[in-house]
Simulated scan of single mutants.
Amino acid sequence: MAELPLRRRVAIAPEHPAFAGHFPGQPLLPGVVLLGEALEVLLRDAPGALGGAPRVSAVKFLAPVRPGADLDVRWMTPAQGRARFEVWRHAPEDPADGVLAATGQVETGGSAA
C-alpha cells in the first residue's frame, strides 16, 4: 500500500468518555468517534479543499482502538471531489509503524456558506 503523504498524530486520552460504555470490561473506541477524529483533522488541515459539507462515502474498520492508543491520520490532498484517508493505531504493543485501524473516503461538499 502506498504511503499517504499528509498526516497528523492525534492523542486519545485513556479516560476518553467514549471508552466507558463501549464496552464494559473490553473498552474500545467507537467507530463514530474514530471517524470524528479523522474528519476533524481533515477539516483543520485541508479546510478549503473539502468545501462546506464533506461526507464520508466509504469506511472500513480493520482493527480496534483501545485505551492507551494514539491515532495517526493520513490522507491524500483532495482531488476530483474526494479524499482517501487511513487511520493507523499506535498502541504500546503495536509495531513501530502502527496498525491500520480504518480506511475511508470523504466526498467534498459545496463551498462553505
Rank of each mutant, 00 (worst) to 15 (best):
A2G: 08
S111P: 15
L34T: 07
L28R: 05
A2H: 13
G68M: 10
D72V: 13
P67M: 11
A63C: 08
A96E: 15
P24E: 09
R9I: 11
D45T: 07
L62E: 05
A46G: 06
Q26P: 03
A49T: 10
V32R: 02
P27E: 07
F61E: 01
G104H: 00
V59Y: 06
L35A: 08
R7D: 03
S111D: 13
L50E: 07
A79P: 03
E86M: 07
A53H: 14
G48W: 09
H16R: 03
P92G: 12
H16V: 00
D45R: 06
A79N: 10
L34F: 02
L35H: 05
A91L: 02
A38Y: 02
L4P: 02
L29Y: 03
G68A: 13
L71V: 04
H90Y: 02
P92H: 08
A58F: 13
A13H: 08
G52T: 11
E93P: 06
P24N: 12
S111M: 12
V59H: 08
E40N: 15
L34P: 02
L71E: 00
P92T: 09
L4H: 04
R44F: 01
P27K: 04
F61V: 06
A49V: 11
G51W: 11
G110V: 15
V41Q: 03
L39K: 06
D70K: 09
A13S: 13
T103D: 03
T103A: 10
P17A: 10
S111G: 15
L71C: 09
R74H: 09
G31M: 04
V56W: 09
D72C: 10
A91W: 01
H16P: 03
V32A: 08
G48C: 11
L35G: 03
A113N: 12
A91G: 14
R7T: 11
P64V: 00
F85S: 02
A102T: 05
G25S: 11
P27G: 05
A18F: 06
E15Q: 14
E3P: 05
L28T: 04
G110P: 13
Q105S: 15
V65C: 04
G68E: 04
L28M: 14
L62V: 06
T103W: 07
D97A: 15
A112I: 14
L42R: 01
A63Y: 05
E93C: 10
L62Q: 10
E40M: 12
L34Q: 08
A112E: 11
R82L: 12
E93F: 06
A113P: 15
L35V: 10
A63F: 07
A46R: 08
T77V: 12
G110L: 14
E15W: 07
A2C: 05
F19Q: 05
E93I: 05
D45G: 04
A38C: 15
G48P: 08
S111H: 13
P47Y: 09
P67I: 06
